[in-house]
Design a protein around this nucleic acid. Sequence first.
DNA 1: TATATAAATGCAATTTAGTTGCATTTATAT
DNA 2: ATATAAATGCAACTAAATTGCATTTATATA
Lengths: 139, 139
Amino acid sequence: MENEEYMKNVLKLHKLRVTDCRSNVLGFFMNNKTALSQGDLEGQFPQYDRVTLYRTLNSFLDSGILHKIPNSQGVATYGLCHETCSPDHHKHNHIHFKCNECGQIQCLDDKIVPVASVPEGYRIEAVNMIVDGVCANCA
Amino acid sequence: MENEEYMKNVLKLHKLRVTDCRSNVLGFFMNNKTALSQGDLEGQFPQYDRVTLYRTLNSFLDSGILHKIPNSQGVATYGLCHETCSPDHHKHNHIHFKCNECGQIQCLDDKIVPVASVPEGYRIEAVNMIVDGVCANCA
DNA sequence: TATATAAATGCAATTTAGTTGCATTTATAT
DNA sequence: ATATAAATGCAACTAAATTGCATTTATATA
């Protein structure tokens, strides 16, 4: 378990009120190397209402603590923002990796998304790269 | 409207039985430059049951006629496979573009996904690149 | 061309993910 | 210490997708 004070500071820095739910959820993300879903939170924190967990995720999204990871449908997954993100300007130029064996989704924070090419007249606002395969643990 | 015979041949080539629903849905995809969702099909084909449309999409996915396009949640969208795909080996090395104005999702068939880099010991099986921005029509 | 059969369809019901409204509780600025 | 704006819990609801089953249909083959 990470330092409780540290969680509080992160929340305050993002202008969020400090509550038990937020501190614990943030700590869970910090101690996890993988992306997490609403379902993961429900499993970990039965003491909090589903709706509260949804709203916690959304407040973290809005404040730039988490980013949503695109996938091929199903459940939404979220990853910690390691770069400095503001609500309306997320910068996630790292690659996301989904292991087809264990199902876990990771942010490859040190793997930069390569430059994308689009047709004449198109404007790029964000680029996401999702790699599917087998992680080192499962290989 | 495309040639009815052509649709039938495509279905037969993918070892699918030829039905009205499948021919019409396939034709709709062929005449559309953009990716389509279940909802798009329901709007276009009120004569078919929702469940039938779901199953049509899934049979097209399984047989390699369509591929699923990753997104940041919401509804699933599907695009025609232009390369030759088999059920378990889809090759979609083109970039997907989502316009934030009109909401349409396109397969940029001639824009190749650049090479991804992953950590030591990771194996790559598929790479998806999704670009968000504004298309030429909306710019 | 007729027919057996495996597959596709339609309908009802269910599951799962996510959202909304509202009363109550709580964090925090003063 | 307290006013108040925000967070929580609960119930109800919406939307997306799935499952089971009876009926219909495509198609292989006799």
